[in-house]
């Protein structure tokens, strides 16, 4: 019996040594066959169990189970280690040069004017505005007369106009849409109307005969100048960042009274003064004012009941400031290299 016991421990010892030496799955399999296989050393040894006395058998049986358990566990553990190592080797072999270019999947780019315009629209929509549009070829009436700019009014000088006939023109301002909206809608009104406008201007880096304006109009009961100011501040913070300061100062537009010019703290220098803002610290972004009661009355809205404010901003200037575009012509030349920058 002692002999049998020693032999079992000897198998255990040899198995341990063989496991330690195995470095591949194949070698490990050979270890399994040698020790735990049907014709392995352990089986061979146990076939002699019959020679043992009944008292010895359970004792030796227990040792034999212990040895088998040890060998099985050893093989499982070694197998896991070897598999991991082999996986690692395979992954190593599969390595790619990650610096080679990827396969192209081109998605088109949005024109920078529309990209910013979409943001502007979203900002206003989040404040309960709708988007209104009107014709670009417009009657003189909507572009001028109804906005309190009669024929031969000197204010027409500042908006050199393309004409088709004395009564029909290319709109010089999106304010024309104000009138169309107010004719159709009774207050409360809350719309913006972005779109193209046209003025006679020779083309250069800062002038284009076609550009975009964003007009806004709010009409309701009890709207006052403080609402105009507060709303502009809110809008400018949304469009130009939460740190933006807004300043209004008197200006003249025939269709608003009082009228104001809107400036914001320079988004390049934050108001310190830089080249971009010509050391002013402020950048003019548009005009605004309380809707002139004559315009309200023209559109069938009673100015004694309702009041409102309107504002207009130039889109190109906003986009040029945002991205540092220094030539307005780039927007209409559509060079693919330019479009790909945004």
């Amino acid at each position: 019996m002692t002999n049998m016991k020693e032999q079992l421990y000897a198998v255990k010892q040899r198995a341990q040594e063989a496991l330690d030496l195995a470095t591949t799955s194949e070698e490990l399999e050979a270890v399994r066959v040698r020790f735990a296989g049907k014709k392995g050393e352990l089986t061979a040894l146990l076939s002699q169990m019959g020679k043992l006395s009944p008292e010895e058998r359970p004792v030796i049986g227990q040792i034999a189970n212990e040895v088998r358990g040890f060998i099985d566990a050893g093989i499982r553990a070694k197998k896991a280690v070897l598999e991991q190592a082999e996986l690692n080797r395979r992954l190593e072999k599969e390595s790619l040069d990650v610096t080679l270019p990827g396969k192209a999947r081109t998605v088109g780019k949005q024109h920078p004017l529309n990209k910013v315009l979409d943001e502007v629209k979203d900002a206003f929509i989040s404040m309960g505005f709708s988007i209104a549009s009107g014709p670009e070829v417009e009657y003189d009436y909507y572009n001028f007369e109804a906005l309190n700019i009669p024929k031969d009014h000197p204010a027409r000088d500042t908006q050199d106009t393309f004409y088709f006939s004395p009564e029909m023109l290319l709109r010089t301002q999106t304010s024309s849409v104000q009138v169309r909206v107010m004719e159709k809608t009774q207050p409360p009104i809350r719309v913006i109307s972005p779109g193209r406008v046209f003025r006679i201007d020779e083309v250069d880096a800062t002038h284009s005969p076609i550009f975009h304006q964003i007009e806004g109009l709010v009409v309701d009961k009890g709207i006052t100048m403080a609402h105009l100011k507060g709303s502009l501040e809110l809008i400018c913070k949304k469009l130009f960042g939460p740190e933006t300061k807004t300043r209004i100062r008197p200006d003249f537009f025939p269709f608003t009274e009082p009228s104001a010019e809107i400036s914001i703290s320079c988004f390049k220098c934050g108001g310190e003064g830089c080249k971009f803002c010509k050391n002013e610290g402020w950048i003019e972004i548009g005009g605004a004012g309380m809707v002139n009661p004559k315009v309200l009355a023209h559109c069938g809205i009673d100015p004694e009941v309702y009041s409102g404010f309107a504002f207009g901003m130039g889109l190109e200037r906003m986009v040029m400031g945002r991205y540092g575009v220094d030539d307005i012509r780039m927007f209409y030349e559509n060079d693919v290299r330019f479009l790909n920058m945004f």
């Binding site: 309960g128 709010v218 309701d220 100011k229 507060g230 501040e233 300043r247 009274e257």
Partner: peptide, 30 residues
Amino acid sequence: YDISEEVARFYGYDNIPSFPFSADIKSGGL
């Protein structure tokens, strides 16, 4: 209205307070 602008000008637009408008809830959108 013209007189109100004269008063506002010399009072100073800077001195006018700011309130965001608080009209009735109105559905905007596209």
